[in-house]
């Protein structure tokens, strides 16, 4: 994207701790919840969406610049705080986009407080136990290997991250993994109490999956589709788990038209 970045940094003081977020644009609000490895900052995907949306990219509590709720033990705790974020920012008719682990949190949020949501958009979302296959266990992989597996191939990973990840990115991955472990070490990346609660969800839901996602099995997309009444699946050809990095324009178009 060629446009100059003009995003702003926001901060919200909740009783559960400070939340940092990035913000740009105007129009229908889009809130994007990041992967388990944290938000890498303002992305081309965000720029593209900000052309006709108000885009808000928070660091989830315990990630990046947002304070850790030391008491939190479950992604559901994070989802509760995220609902407060929507309320305090007075956002209505939100398109809530969850990437990977962020999709897990987004789905939990939708089950408990759908009133501010216009659309739920799950991208390679964790949260359900796949009926076949397993969600890739990052805890048994080095940071580098896990992130590499999140891309469609090693070349794309290198093109994005470089031969050696810079120190700040390494630190982001390391601290993010700790928070991830605090919430979802076991069971890893799913909650058997989520699927039964999706049945009465009346928020239109778009399930987007990278065709070459190696992290969360496509089976999970089908399970989300079966569990949520108004849901449909879009597969992004050529993308792995990190659709927002590999196919930003395509993903932005899907989110924009949802």
């Amino acid at each position: 994207m060629a446009e100059a970045v003009s995003y702003t940094e926001g901060e919200l003081a909740l009783a559960t701790g400070k939340i940092k977020y990035l913000e740009q644009g105007s129009g229908p609000p889009v809130v994007i919840l990041h992967h388990s490895w944290g938000s890498p900052g303002w992305l081309p995907f965000h720029d593209r969406l900000a052309q006709d949306h108000l885009v808000i990219v928070p660091d989830m509590p315990g990630w990046g610049g947002s304070e850790r709720p030391a008491w939190a033990r479950d992604p559901r705790d994070i989802a509760i705080i995220a609902t407060r974020l929507l309320t305090r920012l007075e956002l209505v008719d939100v398109k809530l986009v969850g990437l990977g682990f962020g999709g897990y949190v987004a789905a939990e949020l939708a089950t408990m407080n759908p009133s501010r949501l216009a659309q739920l958009i799950l991208v390679g979302a964790a949260g359900l136990q796949p009926k076949t296959g397993e969600i890739m266990d990052q805890m048994m992989l080095s940071h580098r290997k896990y992130i590499e597996e999140s891309f469609r191939d090693a070349e794309t990973y290198t093109a994005y991250v470089g031969e050696e990840p810079p120190d700040d990115i390494r630190q982001l991955w390391d601290l993010s993994r700790e928070m991830t472990a605090r919430l979802t070490w076991k069971p890893y990346m799913f909650n058997r109490r989520l699927e039964p609660l999706l049945g009465d969800l009346d928020v239109p839901t778009l399930i987007i999956w990278g065709e070459q996602d190696k992290v969360v099995p496509f089976e999970c997309a089908k399970q989300f589709e079966a569990a949520i009444p108004h849901a449909r699946i879009e597969v992004v050809e050529g993308a792995g788990h990190v659709v927002e990095l590999e196919e930003p324009d395509r993903l932005a178009t899907l989110v924009g038209s949802a």
């Binding site: 805890m139 048994m140 992989l141 080095s142 390391d174 993994r177 700790e178 991830t180 472990a181 605090r182």
Partner: peptide, 9 residues
């Protein structure tokens, strides 16, 4: 495997 010896947290 260092990443297993040095688990997060």
């Amino acid at each position: 495997r260092p990443f297993i010896q040095n688990l997060p947290g």
